[in-house]
């Protein structure tokens, strides 16, 4: 293994979603976007619902996108671990399902706003955010 490579593992309750080498990763933490390079200082941070961009070492143009629903990122000894409730690679995303989830969330948001339930609004907004994120990531195909 060359020195300038790190391993990225994305793990969800349904199993390991992604386990590959990478030489550059961008992720959005609660504090903002970070770029991760091999041999970086050990870090733990919370993630936003957003996309993860992974540059693979085999080819300059080889980039993977992963939709991550929150979770935690841990960087330690060039091993990047992400544990999240759910995560999907762009090629695994079911676009029509994500589309339906988006429409459902939009409708639920209208209802919740009409009824002025602030908890419900927050919850639905997160669901909508997730659906939009999945759609956004799947568009990289």
């Amino acid at each position: 293994m060359s020195e300038n490579v790190m391993t990225l593992q994305v793990i969800t309750p349904a199993g390991v979603v992604y386990d590959h080498h990478a030489n550059y990763i961008t992720a959005r933490t609660t504090n903002g976007e970070i770029g991760i390079l091999p041999n970086m200082i050990s870090t733990i941070a919370g993630l936003e619902i957003d996309e993860l961009k992974v540059r693979r070492p085999d080819d300059e143009t080889h980039v993977d996108y992963i939709a991550v629903n929150g979770g935690i990122i841990e960087i330690k000894d060039s091993l990047v671990t992400i544990v999240a409730d759910s995560a999907e690679r762009n090629r695994d995303i079911d676009v029509s399902r994500a589309e339906r989830a988006k429409i459902r969330a939009e409708k639920a948001l209208e209802v919740a706003k009409a009824e002025k339930k602030s908890d419900e609004i927050k919850r639905v907004e997160v669901a909508l955010h997730r659906a939009l994120n999945r759609l956004n990531v799947s568009s990289h195909n």
Binding site: P13, T29, T30, N31, I34, I41, S42, T43, I44, A45, G46, G70, G71, I72, E74, K76, D77, V83, D85
Partner: peptide
């Protein structure tokens, strides 16, 4: 190993501990 924590320990714990409890119970 000491970890760089972003944004800070309490915030991460607030996010991680419920996830931890959830995963244990699940």
């Amino acid at each position: 190993v000491t970890f760089e924590l972003e944004p800070d320990r309490e915030t991460i714990l607030n996010q991680l501990l419920p996830q931890y409890a959830e995963s244990m119970i699940y």
